[in-house]
């Protein structure tokens, strides 16, 4: 394998192909049914849906924890198991999944990304140490490498796990709620890093409730509720109509227009859609179509909380 996290094995073209996938748990609950979407290299894709819509099930099947009852998943053209064996899939966990009291230092955690590149006894070589250092430097966490992980702030913790994904050399990176409990500055840093990784040709799938920031950095969106309701480029897929289908009543939807907003006969409307995190704010002629065309009169603002 290559020594630098940035380099990519030549024959690998990161992609995810989910075809008609159904996941059923042993208690008989069908978590996902007939889900299909496809993503290619150099992509940041948002995975959007209410809690319990099957987002985590989808992540689990991409990481091979659950086997689909029907359908097929391919990562970089390989079976999930093969892709995992080659270290192609990296995972950035939610903060709640991690035991922050575990006696490991920042650099130990990042080194865990290198295990797949080491021998049976997991003895790191100089190349592994260098890769860990580079990955930490890239997320600006090098000065913290000897801290115990629980001593870090929320944003720093996220960056450590991103560094682990980098050190692993993952070409397909799954991020589970990367912006939860993170301040705006860190969110911007993470987004900037993700853009760099996209420029390197990597594929990132991000599950998030931060609807407002999705159009900023995601070029693809998969909207899910037990099945894939819509998938495609953000501009055409991430519409209030699709979101309404996915979230139904679970979404706060505020619309202002006419006399409430304008003193004249302006027909433009202000639409605020929120999943209790950073809301999506739209301003334009008609809420559903406003996002669709580049030439539509559209002003999007960020309402940061």
């Amino acid at each position: 394998m290559t020594a630098t996290p940035a380099a990519r094995p030549r024959d690998i073209r990161p992609s995810i192909a989910v075809e008609d996938v159904t996941v059923r748990y042993s208690n008989g609950v069908t978590a996902v049914e007939g889900a299909s979407f496809a993503l290619g290299p150099g992509t940041i894709c948002a995975l959007v849906g209410v809690n319990g819509s099957g987002k985590s099930t989808l992540f689990k099947s991409l990481m091979g924890f659950v086997r689909p009852a029907a359908g097929h998943i391919a990562i970089a053209g390989l079976e999930v198991r093969q892709a995992l064996k080659r270290g192609l899939v990296a995972y950035v966990p939610q903060a709640e999944e991690v035991d922050w009291n575990f006696p490991v230092l920042v650099e130990d955690v990042v080194m865990m990304g290198r295990y797949g590149h080491m021998g049976l006894l997991r003895i790191p070589r100089q190349a592994d140490r260098d890769t860990v250092g580079e990955a930490l430097a890239r997320v600006n966490m090098l000065p913290f490498r000897h801290r115990q992980i629980g001593e870090l702030s929320g944003g720093q913790r996220k960056r450590v796990f991103l560094a682990r994904a980098l050190a692993q050399g993952g070409q397909v990176i799954l991020l589970d709620e990367p912006f939860t409990g993170v301040d705006v500055k860190t969110e911007d840093q993470i987004v900037a890093l993700m853009r760099e990784l996209r420029a390197e040709g990597r594929l990132m799938l991000v599950s998030t409730h931060n609807l407002g920031s999705i159009p900023e950095f995601c070029d693809q969106v998969v909207i899910i509720n037990r099945t894939v309701l819509a998938a495609g480029p953000t501009a055409t897929t991430f519409t209030p109509a699709n979101l309404q289908r996915a979230f139904g009543g679970a979404l706060r939807h505020i619309q202002l227009g006419g006399a409430a907003l304008h003193a004249d006969a302006d027909t433009r409307q202000l639409t605020v859609i929120s999943d209790d995190e950073r809301p999506l704010v739209l301003y334009g002629e008609e809420d559903g179509k406003a996002l669709a065309g580049e030439d539509a009169p559209l002003d999007r603002q960020d309402a940061r909380r």
Partner: peptide, 22 residues
Amino acid sequence: LARWKDLMLVFFDENQARTVGL
């Protein structure tokens, strides 16, 4: 002695253990 690191990874982060092929 041979597997302590793998066990550590499993106890710390099962998902990561799977992504590195354990």
